[in-house]
Write a protein that binds this DNA or RNA. Structure first.
Length: 287
DNA sequence: GCCATTTGACCCAG
DNA sequence: CTGGGTCAAATGGC
């Protein structure tokens, strides 16, 4: 059991290490070319990214060596206890998940590099925009339990309130994708010094995502769903939203927060796409 | 034909 | 009882 968790942790660490190494190489590469467009220092950004990797790795390392099993929280059985034999006949028979690993960000784009599949949309009482529900595309294949909820903010900005639930456990998330994601990330955001703040940066059209994998291409269409504009109209197409997010990023701050501020402060300082991995309540509540 | 999205129904927690 | 989260049939796109 625990050894299984440890194995997962180790695998994650290895992945992070590979990611870090790749980033290092990327850094090396980019620094030679020196600032393609004289944008914000790519070097700084990469340094931040590397820092993120490093702290994540060290955190996980300590969590593996210690008794804390930080990562695979999701292994816990949902709810059995033979409470309910699960009435399959009836629709919507499920157990609503409690606030497990949740992390919240506000972003100009809902793109995060993962493959999501939309499974629902709901009008929310206090909000004019509907909330969209996504789960990992690989849920059925790999049993990945990652989910996210996306809701457009109403403040006029084209920002989205994104809530991540659970962690990606699907093996399809490789460091390659992570690195690619960073590229998107770099295009869209500037990582600020603030522990929990990222702000938009310019978009460099020349550095569009060079993703040709099938997964990635579906990512975009998958993730994109209907964050509607309340009175304007029928659901926006997600690719349009994405286009707006990635192609003409709006100004303004994006920020993230976690349910557990302690871990947030130390683990999430550099970029939202790793929150799934690095935000662990187990790190806190494990003991 | 397969797969993703849409959407109304269903169910649960507060 | 109500709002929010999930399911699954229907629909559409590739």
């Amino acid at each position: 059991m625990i050894s299984e968790m440890e194995q997962n942790n180790k695998r994650l660490i290895e992945t992070l290490i590979r990611g870090r190494d790749s980033t290092t190489r990327l850094q090396d590469l980019l620094c030679r070319k020196e600032n393609l467009n004289g944008l914000v220092s790519v070097e700084d950004l990469l340094t931040e990214i590397l820092g993120s990797f490093s702290s994540g790795i060290s955190m996980l390392n300590s969590s593996v060596s210690g008794e804390n099993h930080g990562f695979p929280v999701e292994n816990m059985p949902e709810v059995y206890s033979g409470k309910k034999p699960a009435v399959k006949e009836r629709r919507g028979c499920y157990k609503r998940r409690r606030t497990i690993d949740t992390s919240v960000i506000t972003s100009a784009t809902i793109e995060d590099g993962f493959a999501w599949r939309k499974y629902g949309q709901k009008e929310i009482l206090n909000s004019k925009s509907p909330r969209c529900y996504f789960r990992c595309t690989h849920k059925h294949v790999h049993g990945c339990k990652a989910q996210k909820q996306v809701q457009k903010l109403e403040d006029g900005s084209n920002m989205y309130h994104i809530t991540y639930l659970g962690k990606h456990t699907c093996p399809s998330i490789t460091h390659h994708e992570v690195v690619l994601n960073f590229q998107d990330f770099k295009n869209t955001y500037h990582v600020s010094n603030s522990p929990s703040t990222i702000t938009n940066a310019h978009i460099d059209p020349s550095v569009k995502q060079e993703v040709d994998s099938k997964d990635q291409s579906t990512d975009v269409s998958d993730i994109v769903s209907s964050a509607n504009d309340e009175n304007t109209s029928p659901p926006l197409r997600w690719d349009e939203i994405l286009g707006a997010g990635l192609g003409s990023c709006h100004e303004g701050a994006s920020y993230m927060r976690f349910d557990h501020e302690d871990s947030c402060a130390s683990t999430s300082s550099h970029g939202y796409m790793y929150m799934d991995y690095l935000n662990n309540d187990d790190l806190l509540s494990g003991g």
